[in-house]
Computed example of a mutant assay.
Amino acid sequence: MQQVVQQVQQQQLRAGQANAFVLVPQPIPGHPRAIFLRIENQIRVLNNPNDTTFDQVSEAFKSGFQVIGVWEQQTPHILRSIQIRKF
């Protein structure tokens, strides 16, 4: 986790570990598919993830793995990526 944070800080990005999630694979018409993660007591969203990402996030929380969200400082509620850390 610390290594990820150090890398993204150099690029004006931030990262944090999620402690909750909501998957929206079939949203209402006109809205994107999304994964919502709660990181640092804020909700952050990854829009239009692929099916594999949905499965990986769900499985990571079930298995107790770390789910790390990465976002830009200018848009803190929009995730650029999600990383799964398996121990």
Results as ranks from 00 to 15, higher is better:
A18M: 01
F54T: 03
F87R: 04
Q42P: 04
L46Y: 02
E59D: 14
Q83Y: 00
Q11K: 13
Q66A: 15
R85M: 13
Q2V: 05
F61A: 09
P76T: 13
F21W: 07
V5C: 09
Q2L: 05
Q56T: 01
Q42C: 02
F54R: 12
D55K: 15
G64Q: 10
R38S: 10
F54S: 00
I68Y: 01
Q73S: 14
P27T: 02
Q66D: 15
V70D: 04
R80I: 11
D55N: 08
Q17M: 15
V22P: 10
A34K: 04
P32Q: 06
I82C: 01
Q6H: 00
I39L: 07
E59T: 06
K86W: 01
I78N: 12
R85V: 11
N47K: 05
Q74N: 10
V5E: 12
N48P: 08
F21H: 07
F61S: 02
N50K: 11
I35K: 06
R14Q: 15
Q83I: 09
V5I: 14
F36I: 06
R80E: 08
P25R: 05
F36D: 04
E59K: 08
V8R: 11
Q83V: 13
E59G: 00
R14N: 12
A15L: 09
G30A: 04
R38Q: 10
P29L: 14
L37G: 05
H77I: 06
R14K: 13
S63K: 14
I43G: 03
N48M: 13
V5Q: 12
R14F: 04
P29I: 03
V57K: 02
N41S: 08
S63Q: 15
P32T: 06
A15S: 15
N41C: 12
D51Q: 14
Q11D: 13
K86I: 08
Q9H: 12
Q42S: 14
R33S: 09
Q11Y: 13
F61I: 05
A15Y: 05
H31S: 14
F21E: 04
L23A: 06
A34T: 08
Q12C: 15
A20Q: 10
S63A: 12
V70F: 08
E59S: 08
S63W: 06
R44P: 01
H31E: 15
P25D: 07
I82Y: 08
M1F: 05
I39Y: 04
A34L: 02
L79N: 03
V24N: 07
Q42H: 12
F61N: 01
Q26K: 01
Q74L: 14
A20C: 06
R14W: 00
F61T: 00
I39E: 03
Q10G: 11
I28N: 12
P25G: 08
D51V: 04
G16P: 07
I68C: 09
Q17K: 14
Q74W: 04
V22D: 08
K86R: 14
I35L: 02
N48V: 03
R85I: 02
Q42W: 09
Q56H: 06
Q6Y: 02
S58A: 02
V45E: 04
D55F: 09
S63M: 12
N48H: 09
G16C: 10
M1Y: 00
T52P: 10
R85E: 11
H31I: 03
V24K: 04
Q56P: 03
A60D: 00
A60I: 01
Q66E: 06
I78E: 15
P76F: 05
L13I: 03
E40A: 13
L37E: 07
N41R: 04
H31D: 10
